[in-house]
């Protein structure tokens, strides 16, 4: 463990450079550049509001403000899928380096999650803009309270979760390339299983189904995030313990898997 941290310290420059590279290259070749980071969640939120607004968006007592409710879930879900997908491909995409030079391999999934986190942090500005618009120009039920300052807690738990899942996926990807297609399908399923455009509490689901939906760690993380931003209240501590436990477990499992298999990577990439 100590050696690992020493190793990470030695290669911190590489981590920095890869994060810098990923963020830079993401915007380099598009005309609108960094504006895509704002446009993409903005447009998808508009689509979702148009599609689901009349079905799920009526219950303002529970949802407070449907566009913001949607945007919260949507941004977090997008970060989760983007970062884990990028981490998954990171080892196979860096094959040319890994085959020639010694570099600690976990740097690749780690840096890809972190560069996605930077993009995600930029995209949060859309949320800020939405909040400002509704608070200033409309009569909304939305209340801004000091709890919004706690918003970094669910985000850090989410980051830990993404690193753990990223380590697991990147290891699997080296041995089984078709995991990519399976994971795409899984992400689609996850979109519907996470309360992004609906709310578990107001759907009047039977207990086992509701419990199953709540077992999704993204449910807890998104709920905590909404407590801070949307409802302006303290979150349910069960969400905190559950999601943090899940995230830490995923990092432990991911690291063990990665460390046990990493010497074999070179034979498969």
């Amino acid at each position: 463990m100590k050696g690992m941290l020493k190793n990470l310290y030695k290669y911190r420059f590489l981590l920095q450079e890869i994060v810098r590279k990923n963020v830079k290259l993401q915007y380099r070749n598009s005309v609108l550049g960094i504006f895509w980071t704002f446009l993409q969640p903005l447009m998808t939120t508009i689509v979702l509001v148009l599609v689901f607004g009349n079905i799920f968006g009526r219950n303002l007592g529970a949802l407070v403000n449907y566009p913001i409710y949607l945007l919260c879930g949507r941004l977090l879900y997008e970060f989760f899928t983007q970062s884990t997908k990028r981490a998954m491909r990171s080892i196979t995409l860096s094959a040319s380096v890994i085959k020639k030079v010694y570099v600690p391999k976990y740097i690749y999934p780690l840096s890809n999650v972190m560069s996605s986190f930077v993009t995600f942090a930029i995209s949060l500005l859309v949320l800020v803009a939405f909040l400002a618009y509704y608070l200033i120009f409309t009569d909304t039920l939305l209340r801004l309270t000091p709890y919004i300052l706690l918003v970094f807690v669910p985000l850090i738990i989410l980051l830990i979760l993404c690193i753990g899942i990223g380590l697991i996926l990147s290891t699997l990807e080296v041995f089984f390339r078709d995991i990519e297609y399976l994971y795409d399908v899984f992400c689609m399923l996850l979109f519907y299983l996470t309360p992004i455009f609906y709310s578990v509490e107001t759907l009047k689901l039977s207990k086992p189904i509701a419990m199953a939906l709540m077992a999704n760690p993204l449910y807890s993380i998104v709920s905590m995030f909404r407590s801070c931003v949307l409802y302006g209240e303290m979150w349910n501590w069960n969400w905190f313990y559950y999601s943090l436990g899940f995230a830490v477990l995923s990092v432990v499992v991911g690291s063990l898997l990665f460390w046990r298999k990493q010497d074999k990577f070179i034979l498969h990439i």
Partner: peptide, 30 residues
């Protein structure tokens, strides 16, 4: 390792940026 020179380059990155990336791959600071 002078093996297959330029293996650590990113194709979309400029030569200048690749100098720093390659340096970091070898463990050197910016």
């Amino acid at each position: 390792p002078l093996l297959e020179l330029g293996a650590g380059f990113d194709q979309n990155y400029s030569g200048k940026e690749n100098i720093f990336l390659y340096g970091a791959t070898m463990g050197y600071s910016r």
